[in-house]
């Protein structure tokens, strides 16, 4: 019931979102026809092209037309690339997804051991060192981190060739190898935040009565941390990771630009610049759906993790 309600609310949010972005295009100067014809545009040609692209209709009509198509799975044709939007997205989506999953994986791989160790040895040299590293990583602007990675790992150490992104469809293994580096740029700040969050959640749990009970049973601190506290801390951490996942799925515009990854973020920026609103709409729809799905997943996980919530739902 709650899930269904939540789902409906989310669908509403997605629709609102797509409508808002439609409106946004009304506000921004310039349109697809203008971009297409550029400096050679004559008023007549503009009018004609706008007619062909359906830009002369009122915004509501256009939105309704788009929505109707979208509901039937037809997202129209990109005015810039002259190919069906779905085809264009299917070229970019694997890259973004691979990047997202890779960076998520990195976040998890980095955050969990560090978070647990920092919480276990709270106040130790190790903890303090990584707290500082964390804060520092969080304070570096993401594009700058990307540039640093390109320069250090790419140019100086020659671990990869910056800019020579391999597309997923070409060679998945090579693609992943390359994506590791942009994923690092995305994952480092998020991992730092996750470490911090996980640690503070664990420390909150530390003072709870059940931890005392468990220690009273004769369990070691480490064991209590892993078997008792982690499960409880995960309840709040999973929500946070949900946000991280949603952000990762949205594709990092800046990191994709710096590393030249052909992903949705870059496509979004380019399509906004081209006023290619069919593409923008489709991407926003994707973003919305990704957020919805992640939220639902978080909800499900939440229920798995917390029996108290589970009961309310039944």
């Amino acid at each position: 019931m709650t899930i269904l309600k939540k789902f409906l609310a989310m669908v509403g949010t997605v629709l609102l979102l797509s409508f808002l972005s439609f409106l946004a295009f009304q506000v921004i100067p310039g349109d697809a026809a203008q971009v297409q014809l550029g400096t050679n545009a004559t008023p007549e040609a503009l009018l004609e092209l706008r007619e062909e692209l359906g830009l002369n209709d009122p915004v509501l009509v256009r939105y309704a037309r788009w929505l109707k198509g979208a509901l039937q799975g037809d997202f129209g044709v990109s005015t810039r690339y002259r190919m069906p939007v779905s085809e264009l997205l299917s070229q970019m989506l694997p890259n973004t997804l691979a990047l997202a999953l890779l960076s998520l994986l990195l976040v998890l791989v980095l955050a969990f051991p560090l978070g647990l160790l920092c919480a276990r040895f709270e106040g130790s040299l190790f903890d303090r060192f990584f707290t500082w590293v964390n804060q520092t990583v969080m304070a570096v602007p993401s594009f700058f981190l990307g540039i640093l990675i390109s320069i250090f790992l790419g140019i100086v150490l020659r671990l990869f060739v910056p800019g020579r992104a391999v597309s997923w469809s070409e060679n998945p293994a090579e693609c992943l190898r390359y994506l590791f580096f942009p994923a690092l740029a995305i994952a480092l700040p998020k991992a730092a935040m996750s470490v911090r969050f996980l640690k503070s959640s664990l420390i909150t749990e530390k003072n709870k009565d059940y931890v005392r009970t468990a220690r009273g049973k004769g369990m070691s601190r480490t064991r209590v941390l892993l078997t008792q506290m982690l499960g409880n801390a995960m309840i709040s951490v999973v929500t946070f990771l949900g946000v991280v996942a949603a952000e990762a799925l949205a594709g990092s515009i800046v990191v994709e630009q710096v590393f030249g990854v052909n992903g949705l973020g870059r496509l979004l920026v380019a399509s906004i610049a081209n006023r290619d609103y069919n593409v923008v709409q489709a991407i926003i729809l994707y973003l919305g759906i990704a957020v919805v799905l992640v939220n639902l997943l978080v909800d499900v996980l939440y229920r798995r993790l917390d029996p108290r919530v589970r009961r309310q739902a039944s």
Binding site: T13, V14, L16, L17, L20, S21, A24, A246, A250, I253, L268, V269, I272, V280, I283, I284, L287, G288, V291
Partner: peptide, 9 residues
């Protein structure tokens, strides 16, 4: 909605 809206847009 705002949270999910691409900030660039």
């Amino acid at each position: 909605g705002i949270l999910a809206f691409p900030s660039i847009l």
